[in-house]
Design a protein around this nucleic acid. Structure first.
Lengths: 222, 222
DNA sequence: TAGATTGTTAATCGATTAACAATC
DNA sequence: TAGATTGTTAATCGATTAACAATC
C-alpha cells in the first residue's frame, strides 16, 4: 500500500474558517471604497466599523491570511486590496454561464460585479423561444438544450441558475453532468448537488422575510 | 423612580438566536416544497437534509419556537408552515419601496418572492428621466426627489436600495429621514445607518467571489 | 408491541472579544 | 519620545452536535 514514491504528506496550510472567507469580499469592498476616498492606510478599527465587526476580528482575519500592517500606523490600503484579491483567487479569470434570462438573469448579466477582470460571461441560456436568439449584455442567448454543444471545449467555471423554481433541479443536474463544479442558485426551492459540487443558494425573498421578522413589533403596535 | 403603576417587568420571551432566524425562511421554503409533493408529515431528519443541517438543530430550532411534533411520526407539514409564517410576521402585510429601477430594481419589482400575500409594492423610485413615469410591475415609477410627497401618509415598511453604489448612502439617508425603519441594500458599497434602523446588505458579487475562493485549486491546476 | 422519532441535556466545537505586550 | 496600533493569547460567548430517555 505504501510505495517509496508516495508524495510526502502535504503540510496543508490550515483551511480558513468559513466565517473568515465570508468576510473577505466585505473587506475588499470596503478597501475599494477607502481607496476611492484617497486613503493610503487604514486601522483595523476603521475597517471594522465599515463592515460592522470588532477590530480584533479584523486583525485576526488578516493575520490568519498572512497579511501584516504596521504598528502605530495601520494597514496599507492598496496592498491589502491586492493581497485579498489574490487570496480570493480573483487574479484568475472565471467564466460564468447564466441559465434563465428573465428579469433576474438579465440583471445579473448586466451587473457590474458579474463582469469584471475576474468574471466574464461564458454563456447565456434560456428555453423561451421569445428570448433564445436575442442579445443580452453583448452575448447571444442560446437554447438550454444546446448546453453541451455550446460549452464544448470551454466549460464554464461557475453556473448561475436564475430559472423558475420548478426548473432549477433539472438545470443543476444538467450543469453538473457537463462538468460544472460551482453553482450559484437564485431559484426559490430546495436543491441537491453531489458532494464534489460547490453550491451556494441565494433567495432574495429570505432577506425580506428576516427584515419582516425583526420588524414584527412595530406593525403589531407594541 | 419606581411608581406603583409601572408595568410589571415583562417576562420577555427569550430572543431567538440570529442563526435560528436565518434558518426560518429556509424551513418555510422546504415545507412549501414538501407540501407541493403531497407530504403530510416530515421528520426532523428529512427536513434537515433538505436544508443541509443536522437533525438535532431542526428539533432544537422548532422546540425553541414552541412548535411540536409527534414522537415516532414527525411534524405536521401544513401546520408547521403556518406557524413559521406567523412567527416570521408574514401574516402582517408590508409595503416595499424600491429605489433604483434599473435591471436589478425591475427584477426585484417583478420577483415572485417580493410580491406575495405578505409583501406589496408601496412605491418605485428613480432619477433617470427615461425611467420616471414608466410603469414597472404595475406601478408607476416616481422621481426620487418626490419621495416625501409620494409616501406621505403611507410610509413603506421596508426600503429596497438598488441604485449604483455612489447613490446608496444618500438614498438611505433620505429613506431614514422620512421614517423607514428597515432597509435592504443591494448596492456594492459600505453604508451606515443609525442604530434604530434595521439594515441588511446583499452584494450579489460576494457569492461569486466566495465560490471563486473555494475553486482556486481547480484553476490553479493542483 | 416494536420501531420511529421527538424533546432535551450535556458535550463539543467554532467564532468572537478583551486585553495587553510589542513596536512602529 | 509619546501615542497609536498591531499581533497574539486567553477568556468568553454562541452555535452545533451527540446521545438518549420519553413516548407516540
Amino acid at each position: 500500500m505504501h510505495g517509496h514514491y508516495d508524495a510526502a504528506p502535504q503540510p496543508e496550510p490550515a483551511a480558513l474558517a468559513p466565517a473568515t472567507v465570508q468576510r473577505m469580499p466585505q473587506y475588499l469592498r470596503a478597501l475599494g471604497d477607502l481607496e476611492n476616498q484617497g486613503a493610503r492606510t487604514v486601522s483595523s478599527e476603521v475597517l471594522a466599523d465599515l463592515i460592522g465587526v470588532n477590530s480584533s476580528m479584523v486583525r485576526k482575519d488578516l493575520s490568519l491570511l498572512g497579511f501584516t500592517g504596521t504598528r502605530g500606523r495601520g494597514y496599507p490600503v492598496a496592498t491589502l486590496a491586492s493581497q485579498l484579491e489574490e487570496a480570493l483567487g480573483l487574479t484568475q479569470s472565471r467564466s460564468i454561464a447564466i441559465v434563465g434570462i428573465g428579469h433576474l438573469g438579465t440583471a445579473l448579466a448586466n451587473h457590474p460585479g458579474f463582469i469584471t477582470r475576474s468574471f466574464s460571461i461564458g454563456g447565456l441560456f434560456d428555453v423561451n423561444p421569445a428570448v433564445v436568439g436575442t442579445t443580452v449584455a453583448g452575448s447571444r442567448v442560446r437554447h438550454f438544450e444546446d448546453l453541451e454543444s455550446v460549452v464544448q471545449g470551454a466549460l464554464p467555471d461557475i453556473g448561475v441558475v436564475a430559472t423558475p423554481p420548478n426548473a432549477a433541479q433539472y438545470v443543476i443536474d444538467r450543469l453538473v453532468t457537463v462538468g460544472v463544479r460551482s453553482i450559484l442558485c437564485f431559484a426559490s426551492t430546495t436543491v441537491q448537488v453531489p458532494p464534489q459540487v460547490n453550491l451556494r443558494s441565494v433567495d432574495l425573498s429570505h432577506e425580506l422575510q428576516i427584515l419582516a421578522f425583526y420588524n414584527r413589533s412595530f406593525k403589531a403596535g407594541s
